[in-house]
């Protein structure tokens, strides 16, 4: 347990955390804004990378490839949305169905190979692990921060528009949204598309960063996303009221998550046990509000009076 090795690993953890932070913002949109648990992300977190890398291997422009990756993610969200709203499948199950079918589709995109590498010297990648300790504009931390700012800016604008407000209303109170003339089915589909588009963007960036796309790279993505959302709420929940700051807090939550993982690994945890650890942490944090409510119900505060 050499402190220097931990210190050396920190820039990588921050870069990865920021990339996953973009994904976590996608999770935030479905989980917190729309009040849907969308498991599509475990699939679309590989789809974006697969589409982007394969297009670039076919000499597509990097930005065009990134856009196509996002479009593929949005398509995945559309499918989940249609399963949910047009076929009446519960949202969780709809997401699982899309996620499962994406596994096959991702393999098909990747020429039926479990992974596809891309050479950083031969292709113009947006971000790369190789530059994580360089101190210039090619540093992935810097570039990811730019993308993050762009994503947060666009989302901040969008959720302030009439359409964006209708999405928030759908998540806040569906009956009220319909009574106010909002097509809640369409709102949910749109939200799922936006969310998965962002997840796919993050996926493409992660593939760039690590220099390859792997068909399993999205496994457990929803748990990491939820962890980031929960960490952000625990730490910044009372502090940030502004929507843009809340999104930023989610990204910070993802960075903190990766820093903690890095420390745990440094302390000697077997890498294979990481997912178990993540799941348990998320389970405990999801349980806290429930325990708190039970506790409050058993020991009501004295002097409180229901207001009329």
């Amino acid at each position: 347990m050499n402190p220097a090795s931990l210190f050396n690993a920190l820039p990588g953890a921050v870069a990865q955390g920021l990339i996953w932070g973009i994904m976590s913002i996608g999770v935030y949109i479905t989980y917190k804004v729309l009040d849907l648990a969308d498991l599509t992300v475990d699939g679309s977190m590989a789809t974006g990378g697969a589409v982007c890398i394969m297009l670039m291997l076919n000499d597509w422009n990097v930005f065009l490839a990134l856009l196509c990756a996002m479009a593929a993610g949005m398509l995945a969200g559309l499918i989940t949305g249609l399963f949910h709203t047009k076929m009446g499948i519960p949202a969780i199950l709809a997401g699982i169905l899309t996620q499962l079918s994406l596994y096959s589709l991702n393999l098909a995109v990747m020429d039926f190979k479990a992974n596809q590498g891309i050479n950083v010297t031969k292709y113009q990648l947006l971000v790369s692990q190789r530059n994580v300790r360089t101190l210039d504009l090619s540093n992935p931390i810097f570039i990811t921060l730019l993308v993050l700012a762009l994503v947060i800016g666009v989302l901040y604008w969008f959720f302030g528009t009439e359409t964006g407000c209708s999405l928030r209303a759908t998540g806040a109170n569906e009956a009220m949204a319909r009574a106010q003339g909002i097509n809640t089915k369409r709102a949910k589909i749109l939200g799922l598309m936006i969310s998965n588009g962002i997840v796919a963007l993050s996926s493409a960036m992660l593939a760039h960063y690590q220099g390859f796309v792997d068909v399993n790279m999205g496994r457990g993505a929803i748990v990491i996303g939820l962890a980031a959302v929960i960490i952000s709420e625990v730490i910044f929940g009372k502090l940030f009221r502004n929507f843009a700051l809340k999104l930023l807090a989610v990204a910070v939550g993802a960075v903190l998550y990766f820093l903690v993982i890095q420390v745990v690994l440094w302390l000697g945890l077997n890498t294979n046990l990481l997912k178990l650890l993540s799941a348990l942490i998320v389970a405990v944090f999801l349980g806290i509000p429930y325990w708190r409510a039970n506790l409050a119900a058993r020991h009501p505060r004295k002097g409180g009076k229901e207001h009329a």
Binding site: G160, T161, E162, T163, G164
Partner: peptide
């Protein structure tokens, strides 16, 4: 209510 919701400010 009853209007198309656009990308204009909410």
């Amino acid at each position: 209510r009853g209007q198309k919701r656009t990308l204009r400010p909410g």
